[in-house]
Computed example of a mutant assay.
Amino acid sequence: MKKLLIIAFLSLGLTPLAQAQFGVKGGLNVAELQGRTGEDASYRAFYHVGVFYQANILGPLAIQPEVQYSLQGGNLKSAFTNYDSQLHYLTVPILAKLTVGPVFVEAGPQFGVLLSANQSGNLQVGFTPDGQPAYGNVSRPATSEFKRGDFSVVGGVGLKLSSGFSLGGRLVAGLNDINDAKNLSGINDPRLQNRVFQVYAALQFGGRK
Protein backbone atom coordinates (compact mmCIF):
# COMPACT_ATOMS: atom_id res chain seq x y z
CA MET A 1 0.00 0.00 0.00
CA LYS A 2 2.81 2.43 0.90
CA LYS A 3 4.55 1.68 -2.42
CA LEU A 4 1.38 2.57 -4.35
CA LEU A 5 1.09 5.93 -2.61
CA ILE A 6 4.80 6.71 -3.16
CA ILE A 7 4.47 6.01 -6.90
CA ALA A 8 1.39 8.21 -7.14
CA PHE A 9 3.01 11.12 -5.27
CA LEU A 10 6.18 10.91 -7.36
CA SER A 11 4.04 11.14 -10.48
CA LEU A 12 2.32 14.22 -9.10
CA GLY A 13 5.62 16.06 -8.91
CA LEU A 14 6.62 15.64 -12.56
CA THR A 15 5.48 19.12 -13.66
CA PRO A 16 4.59 22.46 -12.07
CA LEU A 17 1.15 22.77 -10.53
CA ALA A 18 0.17 25.47 -13.06
CA GLN A 19 0.30 22.92 -15.86
CA ALA A 20 -1.73 20.30 -14.02
CA GLN A 21 -5.40 19.45 -14.02
CA PHE A 22 -7.03 17.84 -11.03
CA GLY A 23 -10.28 16.02 -11.57
CA VAL A 24 -12.93 13.60 -10.41
CA LYS A 25 -14.34 10.66 -12.36
CA GLY A 26 -16.74 7.77 -12.11
CA GLY A 27 -18.58 5.26 -14.19
CA LEU A 28 -19.54 1.71 -15.05
CA ASN A 29 -17.44 -1.44 -14.63
CA VAL A 30 -18.42 -4.49 -16.70
CA ALA A 31 -16.25 -7.18 -15.16
CA GLU A 32 -15.54 -10.89 -15.16
CA LEU A 33 -13.07 -13.33 -13.59
CA GLN A 34 -11.20 -15.39 -16.17
CA GLY A 35 -9.16 -18.56 -16.10
CA ARG A 36 -10.82 -21.03 -13.73
CA THR A 37 -11.03 -24.51 -15.24
CA GLY A 38 -14.43 -26.19 -14.95
CA GLU A 39 -16.44 -22.98 -14.50
CA ASP A 40 -17.86 -20.65 -17.16
CA ALA A 41 -17.24 -16.95 -16.57
CA SER A 42 -19.74 -14.22 -17.38
CA TYR A 43 -19.74 -10.46 -16.91
CA ARG A 44 -21.47 -8.50 -14.16
CA ALA A 45 -22.07 -4.74 -13.89
CA PHE A 46 -20.33 -2.79 -11.10
CA TYR A 47 -18.93 0.75 -10.75
CA HIS A 48 -15.84 2.82 -9.97
CA VAL A 49 -15.20 6.34 -8.64
CA GLY A 50 -11.96 8.23 -8.20
CA VAL A 51 -9.74 11.28 -8.49
CA PHE A 52 -6.91 12.03 -10.92
CA TYR A 53 -4.13 14.48 -11.69
CA GLN A 54 -3.19 15.21 -15.32
CA ALA A 55 0.38 16.50 -15.51
CA ASN A 56 1.19 17.98 -18.93
CA ILE A 57 4.82 17.23 -19.79
CA LEU A 58 5.38 17.95 -23.49
CA GLY A 59 2.90 19.25 -26.04
CA PRO A 60 -0.02 16.80 -26.31
CA LEU A 61 1.63 14.27 -23.95
CA ALA A 62 0.70 14.02 -20.27
CA ILE A 63 1.05 11.66 -17.33
CA GLN A 64 -2.14 10.92 -15.42
CA PRO A 65 -1.99 9.10 -12.06
CA GLU A 66 -5.31 8.21 -10.47
CA VAL A 67 -6.68 6.76 -7.25
CA GLN A 68 -9.94 4.82 -7.58
CA TYR A 69 -12.35 2.74 -5.58
CA SER A 70 -13.29 -0.04 -8.01
CA LEU A 71 -15.91 -2.73 -7.46
CA GLN A 72 -15.40 -5.69 -9.80
CA GLY A 73 -15.65 -9.48 -9.97
CA GLY A 74 -18.12 -11.50 -12.03
CA ASN A 75 -20.18 -14.68 -12.20
CA LEU A 76 -18.81 -18.24 -12.29
CA LYS A 77 -20.97 -21.22 -13.14
CA SER A 78 -20.42 -24.97 -13.35
CA ALA A 79 -22.61 -28.07 -13.23
CA PHE A 80 -22.93 -27.65 -9.45
CA THR A 81 -22.15 -23.98 -8.74
CA ASN A 82 -23.55 -20.63 -9.84
CA TYR A 83 -22.33 -17.63 -7.85
CA ASP A 84 -21.25 -14.00 -8.04
CA SER A 85 -17.98 -12.62 -6.64
CA GLN A 86 -17.66 -8.97 -5.63
CA LEU A 87 -14.11 -7.67 -5.20
CA HIS A 88 -13.56 -4.25 -3.64
CA TYR A 89 -10.28 -2.70 -4.81
CA LEU A 90 -8.27 0.45 -4.27
CA THR A 91 -6.61 0.90 -7.68
CA VAL A 92 -3.84 3.25 -8.83
CA PRO A 93 -3.56 3.57 -12.63
CA ILE A 94 -0.52 5.55 -13.88
CA LEU A 95 -1.23 6.37 -17.51
CA ALA A 96 0.49 8.09 -20.40
CA LYS A 97 -2.12 10.26 -22.15
CA LEU A 98 -1.88 11.65 -25.68
CA THR A 99 -4.44 14.28 -26.74
CA VAL A 100 -4.98 15.32 -30.37
CA GLY A 101 -7.78 17.85 -30.72
CA PRO A 102 -10.77 16.58 -28.72
CA VAL A 103 -9.61 12.94 -28.84
CA PHE A 104 -7.25 11.29 -26.37
CA VAL A 105 -5.72 7.85 -25.95
CA GLU A 106 -4.27 6.54 -22.70
CA ALA A 107 -2.31 3.49 -21.59
CA GLY A 108 -0.19 2.27 -18.71
CA PRO A 109 0.02 0.01 -15.66
CA GLN A 110 -2.45 -0.25 -12.81
CA PHE A 111 -1.73 -1.44 -9.29
CA GLY A 112 -4.60 -2.71 -7.14
CA VAL A 113 -5.03 -3.59 -3.47
CA LEU A 114 -7.96 -5.80 -2.49
CA LEU A 115 -9.93 -4.24 0.37
CA SER A 116 -12.55 -6.97 0.78
CA ALA A 117 -14.45 -9.61 -1.15
CA ASN A 118 -17.69 -11.56 -0.84
CA GLN A 119 -19.46 -14.32 -2.75
CA SER A 120 -23.14 -15.18 -3.04
CA GLY A 121 -25.02 -17.98 -4.77
CA ASN A 122 -24.71 -21.75 -4.98
CA LEU A 123 -21.19 -22.57 -3.71
CA GLN A 124 -19.22 -25.47 -2.37
CA VAL A 125 -19.57 -25.17 1.41
CA GLY A 126 -17.66 -28.25 2.55
CA PHE A 127 -17.76 -32.03 2.26
CA THR A 128 -20.27 -34.74 3.11
CA PRO A 129 -19.36 -37.47 5.65
CA ASP A 130 -18.29 -39.74 2.79
CA GLY A 131 -15.92 -37.09 1.40
CA GLN A 132 -18.03 -35.77 -1.47
CA PRO A 133 -18.31 -32.00 -2.09
CA ALA A 134 -21.34 -30.37 -0.46
CA TYR A 135 -23.06 -27.34 -2.01
CA GLY A 136 -25.39 -24.71 -0.64
CA ASN A 137 -26.93 -21.32 -1.40
CA VAL A 138 -24.97 -18.89 0.77
CA SER A 139 -23.65 -15.35 1.01
CA ARG A 140 -20.26 -15.16 2.70
CA PRO A 141 -17.07 -13.10 3.07
CA ALA A 142 -14.38 -14.34 0.70
CA THR A 143 -11.42 -12.00 1.19
CA SER A 144 -9.12 -14.84 2.21
CA GLU A 145 -9.77 -16.65 -1.09
CA PHE A 146 -8.14 -13.87 -3.15
CA LYS A 147 -4.64 -12.43 -3.16
CA ARG A 148 -4.34 -8.87 -1.91
CA GLY A 149 -2.34 -7.51 -4.85
CA ASP A 150 -3.41 -7.16 -8.49
CA PHE A 151 -1.32 -5.87 -11.40
CA SER A 152 -3.03 -4.88 -14.66
CA VAL A 153 -2.43 -3.09 -17.93
CA VAL A 154 -4.85 -0.38 -19.03
CA GLY A 155 -5.70 0.99 -22.46
CA GLY A 156 -8.42 3.41 -23.46
CA VAL A 157 -9.74 6.22 -25.63
CA GLY A 158 -11.90 9.22 -24.91
CA LEU A 159 -13.34 12.55 -25.98
CA LYS A 160 -12.79 15.92 -24.35
CA LEU A 161 -15.91 18.07 -24.21
CA SER A 162 -16.43 21.68 -23.15
CA SER A 163 -16.06 23.06 -19.60
CA GLY A 164 -13.59 20.37 -18.51
CA PHE A 165 -15.88 17.40 -19.12
CA SER A 166 -14.68 14.25 -20.84
CA LEU A 167 -16.03 10.80 -21.65
CA GLY A 168 -13.93 7.67 -22.05
CA GLY A 169 -13.72 3.93 -22.20
CA ARG A 170 -11.00 1.53 -21.03
CA LEU A 171 -10.02 -2.10 -20.93
CA VAL A 172 -8.29 -3.20 -17.72
CA ALA A 173 -6.63 -6.61 -18.14
CA GLY A 174 -5.28 -8.32 -15.03
CA LEU A 175 -1.91 -10.04 -15.50
CA ASN A 176 -1.31 -11.89 -12.24
CA ASP A 177 -3.14 -14.75 -10.59
CA ILE A 178 -5.47 -13.48 -7.85
CA ASN A 179 -6.86 -16.87 -6.78
CA ASP A 180 -5.79 -17.75 -3.23
CA ALA A 181 -8.39 -20.40 -2.31
CA LYS A 182 -6.77 -23.31 -0.49
CA ASN A 183 -9.67 -25.01 1.26
CA LEU A 184 -11.67 -26.31 -1.73
CA SER A 185 -10.86 -28.98 -4.27
CA GLY A 186 -12.02 -30.03 -7.69
CA ILE A 187 -12.95 -26.68 -9.24
CA ASN A 188 -10.03 -24.40 -8.34
CA ASP A 189 -7.60 -23.54 -11.10
CA PRO A 190 -4.14 -22.14 -10.33
CA ARG A 191 -4.95 -18.96 -12.27
CA LEU A 192 -7.77 -16.44 -11.89
CA GLN A 193 -7.53 -12.96 -13.44
CA ASN A 194 -9.57 -9.76 -13.49
CA ARG A 195 -10.96 -8.41 -16.76
CA VAL A 196 -12.83 -5.08 -16.63
CA PHE A 197 -14.35 -2.84 -19.29
CA GLN A 198 -14.88 0.70 -17.98
CA VAL A 199 -17.02 3.55 -19.29
CA TYR A 200 -16.62 6.81 -17.39
CA ALA A 201 -17.30 10.54 -17.21
CA ALA A 202 -14.69 12.93 -15.80
CA LEU A 203 -14.57 16.58 -14.75
CA GLN A 204 -11.26 18.47 -14.68
CA PHE A 205 -10.48 21.60 -12.67
CA GLY A 206 -7.85 24.25 -13.40
CA GLY A 207 -4.69 24.04 -15.44
CA ARG A 208 -4.47 24.28 -19.19
CA LYS A 209 -7.62 23.37 -21.14
Rank of each mutant, 00 (worst) to 15 (best):
L12S: 14
G35M: 00
D150E: 07
S11I: 08
P129M: 03
P109G: 11
Q72I: 00
L87R: 11
S162R: 13
G207Q: 05
N188S: 10
R36H: 09
S166A: 10
G23Q: 09
Y200P: 02
E32D: 13
S185E: 04
G158T: 09
N82E: 12
A41H: 04
F197G: 08
V199L: 15
D189M: 01
R208M: 06
I6D: 10
P141G: 11
Q21N: 12
Q64A: 14
V172W: 05
S120Q: 14
A20S: 15
V172F: 06
G73E: 01
A134S: 13
V51P: 00
I63Q: 05
D84C: 02
S163Q: 12
R140Y: 00
R208D: 03
S163K: 09
E106V: 11
P16I: 00
L14N: 08
G169N: 02
L4G: 11
Y69E: 07
K25V: 10
Q204E: 12
L95W: 03
Q21A: 11
L159S: 04
L159T: 05
G73N: 02
V196M: 06
V199Q: 10
G121W: 02
F104M: 01
Q86F: 08
L114W: 07
N122S: 12
L115D: 07
F22V: 14
Q68T: 13
F111P: 02
V30G: 00
V199E: 05
S11L: 14
G174W: 08
A8K: 02
L161Y: 06
R191Y: 11
N118W: 08
Q34A: 10
G136I: 07
F80N: 15
N122K: 12
I7G: 14
L159K: 02
I57A: 05
A41F: 00
V103I: 15
I57L: 09
Y135G: 12
F205C: 02
K182E: 04
Q198Y: 12
Q34V: 11
A96F: 04
A55D: 04
V92R: 00
A96E: 01
F205P: 04
F46V: 03
L161I: 03
K160Q: 14
Q124V: 06
Q54N: 15
A134G: 03
K147D: 13
G59T: 03
Q198R: 14
Q19W: 13
K97V: 14
G121P: 02
S163F: 07
K97R: 15
K25F: 12
K77D: 06
A134Q: 13
R195H: 11
N82D: 15
P190F: 04
L90G: 07
S11K: 00
L71D: 02
T15A: 15
V49S: 01
I57G: 07
G35R: 05
K3G: 06
G168L: 08
D180W: 00
V138H: 09
S139G: 01
G156W: 02
R208K: 09
G169K: 03
S144E: 13
Y135M: 07
G149E: 08
F104P: 01
V67E: 00
S85Q: 08
S120F: 10
V67F: 09
G121L: 04
S163N: 13
G27T: 10
G136M: 04
L33M: 12
S166W: 00
L28Q: 13
Y47H: 10
L203C: 01
L98W: 11
R36D: 11
M1D: 14
V172L: 10
